[in-house]
Design a protein around this nucleic acid. Structure first.
Lengths: 337, 337
DNA sequence: ACCAAAATTGAAACCGATTTCAATTTTTGC
DNA sequence: GCAAAAATTGAAATCGGTTTCAATTTTGGT
């Protein structure tokens, strides 16, 4: 049903109907109520494409999705969806050909030029991230989930990775561990750098030295956790504790420890960062896994909210949120044997 | 940059430029080439909202996302994205308030009435799924990922769940197992029903009887795998093999077996369905996990393709694909002790 | 060289809403 | 009771493309 038709049935002009539905103040309460109830009854709803053309709003937030199946993705999206449900705003997924910066840049250009989205959210930035400069120059509002060190001002929401790993490491040091290994995230990402920082600071602060041989970067997966932990534990001077980048990584680490006939929480302590996935709970692992915890879903919800604010015109330099991370101690961390 | 402006710079009419870019045959090759290269150079791209208004196409495929973090979601989406990258079609996520059919129905209505999508993909249907009837009556093209038994004709792509579990079960029976438990997916979903069918058929065919106490339905998660496996294994007449619904479930099952001092692949055999996640590989589990395997990502890619065909007008009753499932035997299945 | 047919281009209508500006009705103040 | 102000409504322009239909140019056959 079109506006013309609908308005005619009500005996009103399209103008009035449009105003009634959009909540303009110039329409009488009686009329508005009638229009609203009739719209519901007859199932009239403005053609979103016409609205967008006229208003210049795309009514959507873009999210770039790397081809490599990001495990966090679903949770984050789900959180976003929760907030956007009532905002009449869609989420637009744009696929990115993996590992190719140029393609991603091109995708952003396309998004802006064709007016497909009002804003985008970008993930896993690097310290000097070319996307940030590009989006700035294109004038498309954007929120960074994570942080960057570029001089271009940008809105961001990040968790306090440095502090999280710092506290986790301090905890291990306080338990008496002196050789601690770290299976970090992807090399070059800001979050990996921050985590490494936290790891180093904790050592320095207590006067210990980090062994570079005990630090490695890789993607978050069961497989990489296993491989690196195994390699650490088999080396000459094996660590007594391991800091893992994610619960998936921790799964692999657990497996590696067991495969060598050792026990997590006795022979080797393990602590990991937990993004809180409904299908894999740190609490339920055996032994239960000590973690630094921050809900990916909550981040998605908040990022959606902040992005809506940016679209509404909130100043970019006001939008910075650093989320503290909980430290939750369970059975997987204990004094060294 | 707008069409008017761009056309003026080329010394052509908007008409010709539009035709050149949309690949109409009436424009000379020379002109088309010039328009295309200038569009690239100057960064002109039609305002997608204007195009959509005029053509009546939304340029997007909708996917309903349940609030409960579906683990398969990201992989499927990623597969879709891969196909749609070159189709100038977006993916639109619509959040659904969990466990509420009415809300979901309302969301579909909204989608159709506001012309937001050209088609939708629905997941995890039930045998009598009200969504299918609704979408049929609304006239919105849709593809079902999974199957339903409703009399309303619909396009679908599904994997052969029945056969997968049947072969998995036959394999266990052939190894000599006589008490086999099954941790199935959510009750009421067609795929769970098909899997149960496969499980029963395998037994019947060889003249064995299924013990209803050894069958349970639940969501796919590490936690549910643990809980049910543990409960099975602690019961009076414990099973010697377990069929798990997903690799996540299998993780929990492994844990349960270990927690009772038993060994997977010796005391208890385990086999699971594997949707192929990049962060959790059946091959790498300890012991490596026997699976029925079918790539969720590939399904996403194919579903996107089929949906595009539906939008292009392909007959709904032609679009039915049943994918066979590989059976991959590894260390987790062996004869009973 | 000429005319019919084919190829190419452009003017203007249109998609379905929003919003400006003007017109009309109602309310208010005295 | 009347003028001025406020509230309410509507006509028409507009967003930025696509597509119909008509006009013009080019090509081909004799």
């Amino acid at each position: 049903m079109k506006l013309r038709e609908f308005a005619k049935q009500l005996g009103l002009s399209p103008t009035t109907v449009s105003r009634a539905l959009s909540g303009y103040p110039e329409v009488s309460e009686a009329t508005r109520a009638r229009v609203a109830s009739e719209a519901m009854r007859l199932g009239y709803r403005p053609d979103i494409n016409a609205v967008r053309l006229k208003t210049g709003r795309a009514g959507a937030i873009g999210v770039m999705m790397a081809r490599s199946g990001e495990i966090h993705f679903a949770e984050f999206m789900s959180g976003m969806a929760q907030r956007l449900e009532t905002a009449d705003t869609d989420i637009l997924i744009t696929p990115i050909t993996a590992h190719n910066d140029d393609d991603e840049m091109q995708a952003y250009r396309r998004l802006v030029e064709s007016r497909r989205v009002d804003a985008v959210i970008i993930h896993s930035p690097r310290p000097k991230d070319p996307r940030i400069e590009l989006l700035n120059s294109l004038g498309l509002p954007f929120l960074v989930h994570g942080r960057s060190e570029t001089e271009h001002v940008h809105a961001w929401l990040d968790i306090d990775n440095e502090n999280a790993v710092r506290r986790a490491t301090e905890h291990l040091l306080d338990l008496g561990h002196r050789r601690i290994a770290m299976v970090n995230g992807l090399r070059g990402k800001t979050y990996s750098i921050h985590r490494e920082h936290g790891f180093r600071i904790a050592h320095q602060e207590r006067g210990f030295v980090v062994d570079p041989n005990l630090m490695v970067c890789d993607k978050f997966s069961d497989e990489s956790g296993f491989r690196h932990a195994r390699s650490f534990l088999e080396s000459a001077n094996a660590p007594t504790a391991i800091v893992a980048g994610s619960t998936m990584t921790a799964l692999g680490v657990y497996r590696a420890v067991r495969s060598l006939g050792m026990t997590v929480g006795q022979d080797v302590s393990v602590i990991a960062h937990d993004d809180v996935f409904p299908y894999l709970t740190a609490e339920n692992m055996a032994p239960s896994l000590s973690t630094t915890r921050s809900s990916m879903r909550a981040a998605g919800t908040r990022c959606a909210e902040l992005t809506l604010q940016l679209i509404a015109g909130r100043a970019v330099d006001e939008v910075h949120e650093l989320w503290p991370v909980e430290l939750i101690l369970r059975e997987s961390t204990a004094p060294p044997p």
